[in-house]
Design a protein around this nucleic acid. Sequence first.
RNA 1: GGGCGCUUAGCUCAGUUGGUUAGAGCACUUCGUUUACACCGAAGGGGUCGGGGGUUCGAGUCCCUCAGCGCCCACCA
Length: 891
Amino acid sequence: MSDMPKTYEHQETESRLYNWWEKNGWFKPECRPDDAEAFVISIPPPNVTGALHMGHAMFVSLEDLMIRRARMQGKAALWVPGTDHAGIATQLQVEKMLIKNGTSRQEIGREEFLDATWEWKDKYGGAITKQMRGLGASADWSRERFTLDDGLSEAVREAFVRLYRMGLIYRGEYLVNWSPGLQTAVSDLEVETSEEKALLYFFNYPVKGGGSIPVATTRPETILGDTAVAVHLEDPRYSQYIGQTALVPMLNREIPIIADEYVDREFGTGALKITPAHDHNDFDIGKKHGLDMINIMNKDATINENGGQYAGLTREACRDKLWADMKAAGLTIREEDYMRQTPRSQRGGEIIEPLLSKQWFCNVKPAADMALEAVRTGRITIVPERFNKVWENWLTNIRPWCISRQLWWGHRIPVYYVNGTDEFVVAHSDEEAYEIARKQYGTAVTLEQDPDVLDTWFSSGLWPFSTLGWPHDTADLRRFYPTSVMETGYDILFFWVARMVMSGLLFTNDIPFHTIYLHGLVRDEKGRKMSKTLGNVTDPLDVVAEYGTDALRFTLLTSGTPGQDLNLSLDKVASNRNFGNKIWNMARFIITNIDKVNGADKPAAPVYSTADQWILHRLGETTENANRLFEAYLFGEAGRQINDFLWGDFADWYVETAKVQLNEGGATAWTTMSVLAHVLDQALRLLHPYIPYVTEETWQQLKAALTTADIGYEPAGGWPEALIIAEWPTAVEKYPEAVTDYERLQELVRAIRNARAEANVPPSKLITAVVTGEKADSIAAQQGALAFLARLEPSALTIAAQATPPETAVTLPLGDITAYLPLAGMVDVAQERERLTKELAETEGQIKRVSGLLNSPFAQKAPPAVVQKERDKLAQLEAARVEMAERLGSL
RNA sequence: GGGCGCUUAGCUCAGUUGGUUAGAGCACUUCGUUUACACCGAAGGGGUCGGGGGUUCGAGUCCCUCAGCGCCCACCA
């Protein structure tokens, strides 16, 4: 008897197994031979300050699945973990803490602030990786990296210097997306637009010398920065004014009236005010016409001295005051409700202001072309394929990337200004900078490093190779680069994936990975985005605590398809927890039955029963399907099929049938035990990448029991030390005839159970049956199983090709066999006649349908195998009809 | 303005290369504690696969079209 508890205890198991796996070095690629094929995934580094959410649980589940399978396939599987310094997010967190402590970033200064941030990182940075361990992540923690560690910082400088020398990095004053709250520029990607209720303000632009041009704007405060009024060349309403001068309201600054075909005569008033320093379109028009660019705002979006009497006001206050003043001056026309595409900061949420600012930019066009080529030619495959189009579209229309940020936490830009001028040198280090500068400017040179840092994504864009040692030619880089699969959410396809591909191609002259697998977002059960404000966030740690890691992983892995958002339901998690328990109990059954066999029972060669062959065949099919689906990255379907096999075939049918065979003792019992052990062993291997804990624990129990029982059973290839390093199943056995025979038995059992239920025969009552028909012998060979499964009295069974049917009986015509259940006293003749008549009508309907099909062009045009299937079906139906008709006649 | 996705049982979702009466889990009904498991077992009810058209011997699956929902990209004041 086993001391296994009736219920699988995930709480007790998980950390014990995790520590054991890690201690044994199985998370490291070195657990495989040096010449083993490499399989590598770089983790999408979570923000170092972040807390685990379902998105993390999703990627950990998927990547661990791929890594574990690769490891079992004998590959040198390497999963490189790490975290991202996350410039803005982390800086905000630390600033918040400082304010709470009564100080501020500005007050303590840059040096001290960075010290405080590192301190914060050391204190809280480990939380997220600890949580990932809890999810079973079999990553090689000895290779853990941080985007701001020394090695990666070196990589960032190297990349910057190379880009600069390639002429792809430049500094310039352009209109950038300015975040007034964070006081930094952000990239186009970090701006999110949403349609928001606003007003469209109509007013008259006075023309010097009389007349006016009506104009509309959503942001009246920008009037202060207007440097032109534009109309369409062929607009009869306004063309007379072209070339004249307009006067900026309230400021009375003189500005030209110009013609430009960009102006849409149909929209608004058909005339346009131009503010080149505060609007992207106007910036382009301003450049085109050589207009002045007047910046009217400070870094905090208050109005500067160029705003005249409005200087010092916030942008909102200025809008109100200016509009009120214009109203008083009789310049306004009206205000209209308007839905405006409002740009907001991805981080802070405040409205982004287009602002003229000197920043560092990266011309990504050449690299983008290479990235496009890599996907077009298939060097890189995107799963699911439809994201090719998104990729194509974004990279084709890519614009320069603003890479400088006015933050303190991040990689400082390796640019040094010389002697307080705008001249600069670019260098890998301070020493190198001085060296270069002295050569050029003499020994008395002073250098000042650019105060800005790089966009966080600049460093994460180097991740797949920087984590392996680039720019140095390390052993890891040679062995594990390019990596294999980049698995991440589709929401960071542009932010991160595209940039890794571009920088990989640029710096390593190679693709960083051959496959991009994109998963969807995890939403709540109603399909809403999880958010703190909605209060619908499901914390993975809570789920894990209640249902176990395996239940959460299996749910995330089998609830959807690649690239598709999935709605997480706790009901599903619960039923997957039950699945783990079911597996546990399959092993418990096997283990508690080992004493029914002993070593002496072992046959020279196994003789498999119909059921044995059937389950081995089904195992083979499942293995084949799973492998095919894995290759196609259809992990969800693979998992579902293994689940169906284990629960629906193995537990529900084979284990039940095995009970009979085990009780027979001798070689039959031994063989049955070997099949039970083999099938469960193989299925546990297939499931291990999905649900590592319960499979390992169950497998260890099974192994321990079978090895100590000394019955002479051993899996092919012997017992490995652990499931995590066991060989991945590929072997396939086929027994098509046994499948037909066992399925016939299943059909018969179901028919009898159904008849019993309809006649209200209690399960405790054993009944008798007569089974006849041409295939009766195949049932006779499975007599014991039939009796057990259908709850029949074994000694009262009649199974023969020819047999006299009992007088009063329920008839179950199944085609090549017919069963009669003598249920005298429970079913009368009239009832049975009614039931049979109904069934006969149904059968005849089906015969009509199938024979109609076979008499249609289908018979000629469909593949022979498909046609034959229909013919067989028809034959079964015909036989059943004859049987029913005869029986009805005799009743 | 472009592009993408979704619409299948009451709910949440599968359905891999088109193969002929559409599947799972949960929920529901009835029965059951036969020593693996009540985190269980057995039997059942429930869907004209969003609408319309087309291709095909055959369409949930491919094509066109319409509708609803969602997402991404885009400089209309």
